[in-house]
Amino acid sequence: EWIKYAAACREGEDNSKRNPIAKIHSDCAANQQVTYRISGVGIDQPPYGIFVINQKTGEINITSIVDREVTPYFIIVCRALNLQGQDLERPLELRVRVLDINDNPPVFSMTTFIGQIEENSNANTLVMKLNATDADEPNNLNSKIAFKIIRQEPSDSPMFIINRYTGEIRTMNNFLDREQYGQYSLAVKGSDRDGGADGMSAECECNIKILDVNDNIPYLEHSSYNIEIAENALHSDLAQIRVIDLDEEYTDNWVAVIFFISGNEGNWFEIEMNEKTNVGILKVVKPLDYEETKNLQLSIGVRNKAEFHHSIMSQYKLTATVVSVTVTNVVEGSVFRPGTKTYVVTSNMEANSKVGEFVAIDMDTGLPSTTVRYVMGSNPADLLVVDSKTGILTLRNQVTMEQYQMLNKRYQGTILSIDDSLHRTCTGTIIIDLDGSGWKTEGTSTVSVQTTKENGEETTFTEPGGETSSRGPYVITDENGGGTNGEREPYQRPGDNVHFGPAGIGLLIMGFLVLGLVPFLLICCDCGGAPGGGAGFEPVPECSDGVIHPWAAEGPQPAPGDLTTICVPQIPPGGGVTMMECIDNSGVYTNDYYGREMQDLGGGERTTGFELMEGVKAPAAPDICQEYSGTLRRNSMRECREGLNMNFMENYFCQKAYAYDEEDEGQPSNDCLLIYDNESIASPAGSVGCCSFIGEDLDESFLETLGPKFKKLADISLGIDTEYYPDPDPSWPPRNTEPVCPQQTTGLVASGHPTVSHHVGATTVISENTYPSGPSVHHPMPISDPLGYGNVTVTESYTTSGTLKPSVHLHDNLHGPNVVVTERVVGPISGADLHGMLEMPDLRDGSNVIVTERVIAPGSSLPTSLTIPTPIESSNVVVTERVIQPTSGMMGSLSMHP
C-alpha cells in the first residue's frame, strides 16, 4: 500500500533529456565500493537495453523510445553489490510508468455496420450500436471515443442520432417511411480525445434497412364492378378484382383479403386471392336461378392478411365496393320435382283406381308443364297406368298375391315426361312398398303401403349417466300410459325418482354422527382450565393476543404504532441484504485534464498546474462489495476498500509531474495529498480514522506554505510533535468553533448547506480540536461517536478572508494561508440523523477523501465559482482547495455546488 513515486517517461518521444530518470543509492557506499545493477524487462529482458545504469553513481537513464501499447510500464529491479558480487541490500523495485500519447486512432470493429429498424418506430428507438476501440491507454482521454454522424444518404432530413459515448444509433423521430426510403446509409466518425479537435478519427459506414409495417390500407382497382352470368351455371373465374397496396410486395402487409360484406347470403360466390398478383378471382360455386334471382348486388371489402399497424389502425374504415350481378335466363324445360314420389295403395283399390298424379314442372314458369306428354317407363308387373296428358296414375288391375310375391313386397317404377318440341325427356320415380301384413291369399286382404323416409331418423336420448347415445327405434313411454306397443322396457327418464345407494345412506349417517359429536367435544374440552391436564387444546389466556408475538420471534416489542414506521434501508439494485456498499474503482479517468477547469482558472492561473475537476469516475461495471453496518464491520470494511486506488494515485503523481514540467512559469510544488482513511486497519478504536500525508521526503520546509488545516494534518501524519511546531498563524482557527462570520459562511455555502456549527462539533476533531493552540493538545482525541464507528460525517467550510480577519491573513500570496478552504471528510453513513443537519451528498460509496491544496499565483483574478464535485459513486473523492488573493475583499461571488 505504500505510495511510491513512479518514474515516468512518455511513449513515442526521446526521453533522454530527462535523464537520469532515477537514481539509487545505498548507504553502504560510504565505506565500501558499491556496484549498482538493474535488471528486468527493458534491461536484460526484451525489449533489451531500454534502461541503463551507471554502476558507480546509480543513475538510471532511459535510452530508447518506448511504446506504451507494447509495454505500459517497466519494473526495474535495483540491486547494490559489493566487490564480490554479493547483495549489500535487499533489491528494490522501481516502477517506470509509460505515459500515453494519442498515437492510436479509433478502430471500428466493422467497416460497415448493418442494422434495421421498422418504419414508423417511435423516436429514440435503438437501431444499432457501433463499436470501436482505441489502443491508447484505457480510461484516458486518448482512448475516449466520441461518435458522430457526419453524413446520411438520402440526406433529405436527418433521421438518426448517435450517442457520442455509447455509439448507439437511435431514431430521431417517428417519420421513417419505408415507402419513401427503404434504406439509409450513414457515415459515422469516431474521434478519440472525446471528439476534440486534436483527436484522431476513423470512419465507418452504417447501412440501415427500413423494415415494412402494415401502414398502407389496400383498395380495389375499381370502385364498382358489373357482372352478368347465366342461371344454373358455375364459374371458376368469373371476374378478377385487383387490389392496390403500397406495402412491401408479397408480404402479408401487401397480400389482400377480399371478403363479402353483404349480398352473398346464398353462398353462391367465393373469392380466391392470387397472392402473387394480389388479384381476387370471383367464382360462382352455387348456381343461381333466374326465376328466383334476376339481379344481385354484392358488397365486398378488402383488408390485408396482416393486421394493420397501430399507427393507421384508427384510419382504417371498411369501404364497400358494389359488384352488380345480372342473372340471365336459360330455357330449362320440364322436370319432375321432386324426382321420386311414393304413393298409397289400399287393399280395397280396384282396377282403374287412382293412385295419384305425377306431373312435370316447367322450370321457366314454375307451373305444371303443358307441353309434355307422359308415358310409363319401368312398370314392374305392369301395375300402373299413366294418363299421357295429366300424369294421373291408376291401377291397371287389383294387386294379386302373385304380384306381391313377384315384386318382393316393393314396387319401383318410372314415369317419363316427353317434350317433343325441345326433344327432352325427364324421368320420375314411383315407389310403392307392399307390406305383407294383412295380406290374404284370396286377394281380399290389404296391401299396406307406407311412406318410407329417405333417411331413417334416429332418436337421441340422454342417459342418466350423462352419456349421450344414439339409439334406434326406442319407444317413448307416455307417462299417461298410452301410446306404447309394450314390446320394449319403458325408458326411465332421469330425475323422475331419487334412490339412495348404500354409500349415500352411510354418508347421511356419518353426517348426523358428526353433528352430534360437536357439542360433546365442546363439553369435554375445558379450554380455560388448569394446564397439565394431558393432551388437549393450548389454553389461551384472556386479554392477550395469544401465544404468537406480533413483533416477530426476537427483539423488543415495538411501541404501539411503530409497526407502521419501520425504516427499511434502501438497498441498491443488485445488492443483497447488507446495508453498506463501496465501489472499488479499477480505473481513473480525468476527463478535463488540460480541459475545462484550466480554462476556468484563466490564463494567468494555468501555471498552477491542473485540477482533477471531474473527480474520479466510476468504471462502467464497478465491483460492488458490501458491508454490514455497525461496529463489526471494521475489518471487512478494510478489506472492501483496500485502501486507495493505486491507479488513481499513480496517475495523479505522473500527470502532476508532467503538468509542471510543461508549464512555462515556474511554480513551487505545493501539492500534497491528505488522505483520510476512515477506520482502516490500525485505526485506534474511537478515532475518526487515519490520515495519511504524502509529500516531499527530503524537504519539509514546504510545510510552511501549507494552510493551517493541512499543516496540522501533515504534522500529525508525519509524526511531528505539534506541541513544538511553530504556529504561523495564532489566530487559526478561531477559538470558537462556531462560524465567526455567519453571513460569509452562508455565502460560501450558497447552495443550501446549513452552517456547520456546534451541532457536529463533537465530531469535528480532525483539525480544529487538535490544532496546536495549546500544549495540552497533542493528538486527535478520541471522540464519542454518537452514531457508532464509521458513522462520522464532518464537513467544514470556513473562510478567513475578506472582512473577517484581513490583517491576519494577508500574507505573502504565495505562501500565505488559505483564504477559502473547503474540506469535506466523508465517512460511511449508516444513520440518517446527520442528513437533517448537513446537506451532504450521500457519499456512502466513497472510501477516500483526497484533499488537494492549491496555491494560485498572486495577481490573478478571483475565480467566478468554486465548484466541488459530487462524486457520489466514486471511491475517491477529490476536494479542491484554493487560495485566492484576498485583495479585492470580494467573496460574494463564490458559490459552492454540492
Partner: peptide, 26 residues
C-alpha cells in the same frame, strides 16, 4: 538504507528535485 529517488521535473529554476517514496500513516 537503500533507496530509490525519482526525478521530478517541476523545478524550473534549474534545480532538480528528487522524490523518495514515503507514506506515513497514523
Amino acid at each position: 538504507e537503500f533507496q530509490i529517488q525519482v526525478r521530478d521535473y517541476n523545478a524550473k529554476n534549474g534545480t532538480i528535485k528528487w522524490h523518495s517514496s514515503r507514506r506515513q500513516k497514523r
